[in-house]
């Protein structure tokens, strides 16, 4: 079986903070359309990995090649322009604006790069797109509510919706379901993954809940002390001794 060239290639990624090694020997290729789950105990280096891929942190050494373009050295904005978006462990939205206002500005920025940013923002086309996103992410009921009064779950949905309006080819979600009640988690992920499937986005998401991992991903990366200790299908990963010991925390 010949596989298509990977969409992203990560080689020998290393990140140290003084004596702390947050990432080490990270070598992975990810193909277009894969849904990858990133698991690991607290402090294993998951967020650090997401931050490096999205330009928030620059690695101590190593390379990240996305569609043939080197990402190391690029900042968040350039990585976004290259075609990679992210959401955050703690949602990062504009809290004193309404849901619709958040989406409108996200859409306008995605569409109006460079001098086009000096064009009038309001338009029927923008409004239509905004409504479309509200619908796909089931945010219609919250449309005109200020973010600061909304629950964590709604904020997280908005955070993800804002990340995808730039039509990224890769989306990284840092703990999309944290802060969401157990009963709501699956509904939440159904909304998100359903919306993403339509766009054929390659998704990497950090998750602590193994039921979510099993249900939605095609591949698991398990982190332990900055290193990837398992890179396999979810059923194999969850049965793996090392994963059991270092990620899930059960000892045999």
């Amino acid at each position: 079986m010949t596989r298509a060239a990977p969409i992203i290639e990560i080689r020998d990624l290393l990140k140290t903070f003084g004596a702390v090694v947050a990432a080490k020997d990270i070598n992975i290729d990810i193909s277009r359309g894969e849904i990858v789950g990133i698991i690991g105990a607290n402090g294993a280096g998951k967020t650090c990995f997401v931050n490096m891929v999205t330009g928030y942190l620059s690695p101590t050494s190593g390379s990240i090649t996305f569609e043939g373009v080197e990402l190391v050295g690029k900042g968040p904005r350039e990585v976004t322009h290259a075609g990679i978006s992210r959401s955050f462990q703690v949602s990062q939205v504009f809290h004193s604006m309404t849901v619709a206002e958040n989406l409108r500005i996200a859409l306008a920025i995605a569409e109006n790069r460079g001098v086009n940013a000096l064009r009038i923002m309001e338009s029927d086309a923008l409004e239509a797109k905004c409504n479309d996103v509200l619908k796909r992410y089931k945010l219609e009921d919250y449309r005109d509510m200020t973010v600061s009064v909304l629950s964590q779950g709604i904020r997280k949905l908005l955070d993800i919706a804002m990340a995808v309006v730039s039509e990224p080819r890769i989306l990284l979600l840092d703990e999309p379901t944290s802060g969401i009640s157990v009963e709501e988690k699956f509904d939440f992920m159904d909304v998100v993954m359903g919306a993403l499937k339509e766009d054929n986005v390659t998704v990497l998401f950090v998750e602590h809940d193994m039921e979510i991992v099993e249900r939605y991903v095609s591949r698991v990366l398990a982190f332990y002390q900055g290193e990837i200790i398992a890179d396999m299908s979810p059923d194999k990963a969850l049965a793996d001794d090392k994963v059991q010991e270092f990620v899930i925390g059960k000892r045999h």
Partner: peptide, 22 residues
Amino acid sequence: KTTVGRLTTPIRDNEIRVEYLG
């Protein structure tokens, strides 16, 4: 009323998000 002109409250609220929006 332009896109950059509208970047008022967004910048006050969350600069990181503005950068990640591009």
